[in-house]
């Protein structure tokens, strides 16, 4: 039942043997040892499993790995230097247990691509599909705004 699929993962061409039922987050963990996307609620509600496929954020726990074939997959592990969003999350203390953090960072990058100067309402709506049980929400709003400022300055 397994078949080989090819895709680009964080900029590199890769292939993996996947079964039809396997989700993208399972394949990232089991075949590539990438654990930044992680299943939590299992229902696409919490955002812990966020992965970017072909430039759009998806819930990796609801996304069949087969659908990534031929695509461009990007995870929190991409890149070797911190970007403005990651720096802002650190500086604003926007993380506690850290389990939801990669998802928030990937979503924030997408948010800032679409809305370079987001107001509170835009931030809240865009990130409403990510849950933080430690409830660092006020600090995350700060970080999004700080990251926006940092990105405008560079």
């Amino acid at each position: 039942m397994r078949r080989s699929i090819q895709f680009r993962l964080n900029g590199e061409a890769v292939s993996a043997q996947v079964a039809p039922h396997e989700t993208l987050v399972e394949v990232l963990q089991d075949a590539f040892g990438l654990f930044g996307a992680r299943e939590s609620c299992g229902q696409g509600l919490c955002g812990c499993c966020t992965v970017v496929v072909n430039g759009r954020a998806v819930s990796g726990c609801l996304y069949l790995a087969s659908f990534a074939e031929g695509g461009e997959v990007s995870t929190i592990e991409a890149g070797s230097r911190l970007d403005a969003v990651q720096e802002a999350f650190i500086e604003c203390g926007s993380l506690q247990c850290g389990f939801c953090t990669p998802g928030f960072i990937l979503m924030t990058r997408q948010l800032l691509e679409e809305h370079p100067e987001p107001d509170d309402d835009t931030i809240r709506h865009y990130l409403s599909g990510n849950l933080c049980r430690c409830a660092a929400y006020p600090q995350i709003i700060e970080a999004v705004k700080l990251a926006a400022r940092k990105m405008r300055q560079t």
């Binding site: 930044g36 992680r38 929190i76 592990e77 999350f89 650190i90 993380l95 953090t101 990669p102 960072i105």
Partner: peptide, 16 residues
């Protein structure tokens, strides 16, 4: 001081 493990957590590398 920002949490010592901040880098691990914002890059998805924290050990769980």
């Amino acid at each position: 001081l920002p949490r010592l493990e901040s880098w691990l957590k914002v890059t998805g590398r924290a050990e769980y």
